[in-house]
Simulated scan of single mutants.
Amino acid sequence: MATPLTAARFLAALRAEGLDVVEVGDWSDHNRNSKGAWGPVHGVMIHHTVTRGSAATVDLCRRGHSTLPGPLCHGVITKDGRVHLVGYGRTNHAGLGDDDVLRAVIDEKPLPADNEANTDGNARFYGFECENLGDGADPWPTAQVEAIVRAAAAVLRAHNWGRDGNTSVIGHSEWQPGKVDPRGPGISMPDIRARVAERLKHPASWSPGGTSTYTVGRGDTLWSIAASKLGDGARWREIASLNSLKNPDDLSVGQKLKLPKR
């Protein structure tokens, strides 16, 4: 249980965890606070958007739609691993859920099955929507899942939550009966929780699996290095964070870079 972070602390926590954060419009003042309180907060909730395309997904989560006004979350995690901040305060991301699940989150105990919807989740959780069709087949890229882990860890670290069982991070399907998100190949909430718990044993700048060293050659970019050495060009942001590069385009031939595990 905690008072929500200020918007500035929330942003700083995400960036400290090595995330590429995009601030969308007046995100820090865009909320549904007129409809009720936000806080005290207890954890982080992960969803999928049932949408295709990063720009359209971010716009939808910011604006909402005719039956559910935006913002629909605090941050949108797109397939490239970027976190787009679209709102801060009360958002329409969780809806009603199970009070027994909330109690388990607060106590950091194993989650019971959700079988009722009697508690306002919009007031109690940080929410991250993740770009995915939600059809059970749309894959979750490595960069996106890593961003989910880091975003959740950033919030938990700032609040000093989740040091043991880590049930401070839940999926929408674990909160509200009938929901299935997030689902699909490459993601599971037990795995997300385990990875977040591992991150919290290390500093925010930690990269799992240790590092290797790469010497920058002529024509190299962070994207080309990530693509050739890590198998995923989108992971260039991990390299930038690991090496504290303020300008990812500012590389020099012969420069030594630490690379995260492939």
Rank of each mutant, 00 (worst) to 15 (best):
M189L: 15
D138G: 07
V76C: 11
D107Q: 15
A158Q: 01
S212F: 05
L230N: 10
G127K: 04
G184H: 04
G70T: 03
D107W: 05
Y88V: 07
G219N: 12
P40V: 00
T119K: 10
G178Q: 07
G233K: 08
Y88S: 03
P141I: 00
Y214R: 10
R237T: 14
G87T: 11
K35Y: 12
R262H: 13
D138E: 04
G64V: 09
K179Q: 14
T213A: 13
L251Q: 13
T211P: 15
R235A: 01
H93Q: 12
G219P: 05
A137K: 15
G53L: 06
A2K: 01
R124Q: 14
Y214G: 11
W223G: 10
E116Y: 02
G81D: 04
T3A: 09
A56R: 11
A16V: 06
V76I: 13
G43C: 05
R32C: 02
A197W: 01
D250H: 14
E108C: 14
H30P: 00
W223M: 09
P248Y: 00
D181C: 05
C130S: 12
V22R: 12
P182V: 00
D249K: 12
G165K: 13
M45G: 12
D20T: 13
V86I: 12
S173R: 14
N243S: 05
E17R: 05
